[in-house]
Nucleic acid binder design. Structure first.
Lengths: 221, 221
DNA sequence: TGGGTCCCATGCGACTCCTGATCGTCGAGG
DNA sequence: CCTCGACGATCAGGAGTCGCATGGGACCCA
């Protein structure tokens, strides 16, 4: 599951990102409305957390623009203080839920989970397909063609992270940050070890090495 | 199935909790409106029983706030005496049903079941079939092939949660969260114990362990 | 008081994960 | 075109974690 946080308060944004990453989500953060809109329209997010008070373009506008462009990604609005949020306007522009600051972290996580759950109940499938590779993130199962591959938890997490960014180059540092603990201080070699295992269990040419930069999951066959 | 009771009369709240627990629900109780709202927004309840006369925040307000935040959990209102309840207002704020005190316990249980059933009717049937496993969540009965299995309340609740998300990996934390009540702070080993019991009473390969992630109820092959 | 459910504790067994070392490969610059 | 250095791939083994089974105690209801 991939989340986008659009929030200009950097401390808050960072702490949310940290926590949600620990929950197992792939999290991107941007700090202004314009960039938020760009990212949300170009990348496949499962949920957007959107502050209302933003430089560039405010949250309502971002939300409305997204809906106008036909994106139905769930949107969770954040409001700076009680009363600022105009509920009618929020619902009009197409937000799915909102939270009033200050809120506790557990509340946020609960809302995020609830929205994703609601989405899933509506029939959205968490299955990613690239060529003959099929990854079901909810079932934690992987197929290569007809055959199912048996992956360990870590192997699956690494693959999931690559799949969520299929076609992009993902650095080892990025993989370490998302799959391992934030404060992990180990050898980046560990990533190589897992990529190696994935190539062995799946197919060698599925994950391309980009020397000096990282890895890229091949999309087109 | 997890229920929240928001009721300041402690004797009543306690007796309802006791009865509903015996029915196999995981029940949490809070005594004022503010905390009720907090809980209902942060924990994944399947139904909320909400008194109108409450300290802190009255029932209408709690209900309206829940709906405004996008939560569609079924809500059963309790009114202190005939005439106090303004049906129009109750329905406006988004309650699904109401009961006028005094009411009998069996009536309450019937309404609770009806609401949960209605919820299901909107989507899935109360009977789930996966291979030769048949689970009737309304009657709380389980068959394996022709033979009915005798499960305890907790065993059934665990199975029910797995069945509702058949094919997906469900973490132990998630099972704990949904099957046990808020006050429970036990270790995840208890989930292992119940899964073990289910495998023994049903069939070992029905619930698959996904090491490091959780359990998955196997769907059709 | 007795049967049953529920929860906890312990020990064992199996698997996963990481470390460190060695080997292989790429590419820049001479 | 060759050499060298840096980066990446692979392998094996031990430590640690995770999951399972089992037995016993607390509690509840008949």
């Amino acid at each position: 599951m991939r989340l986008l946080i659009v929030e200009d308060e950097k401390r808050l944004a960072l702490s949310l990102a940290k926590g949600l990453t620990a929950e197992g989500y792939a999290v991107d953060v941007v700090h202004d409305g314009r960039e938020g809109l760009d990212r949300a329209t170009t990348e496949p997010y499962d949920l957007v957390i959107l502050d209302i008070m933003l430089p560039g373009l405010n949250g309502y506008r971002v939300c409305a623009a997204l809906r106008a462009a036909g994106h139905d990604v769930p949107i969770l609005m954040l409001t700076a203080k009680d009363g600022e949020y105009d509920e009618a306007e929020g619902l009009d522009t197409g937000a799915d839920d909102y939270l009033t600051k200050p809120f506790s972290y557990v509340v946020l996580v609960a809302r995020v989970k609830a929205l994703l759950r609601r989405r899933r109940a509506a029939g959205a499938s968490p299955v990613h397909v690239h060529g003959d590779l099929k990854v079901d993130t909810a079932a934690r199962r992987v197929w290569l063609g007809e055959e199912e591959a048996e992956l360990t938890a870590k192997e699956f997490s690494v693959l999931e992270h690559l799949v969520l960014r299929a076609g992009e180059v993902v650095s080892k540092a990025d993989i370490l940050e998302h799959v391992w603990d934030f404060a992990y201080e180990g050898d980046p070699n560990i990533v190589e070890v897992y990529v190696s295992a994935l190539r062995r269990k799946l197919r060698a040419d599925l994950i391309r090495t980009v020397r000096g930069a990282g890895y890229r999951l091949e999309t087109a066959p």
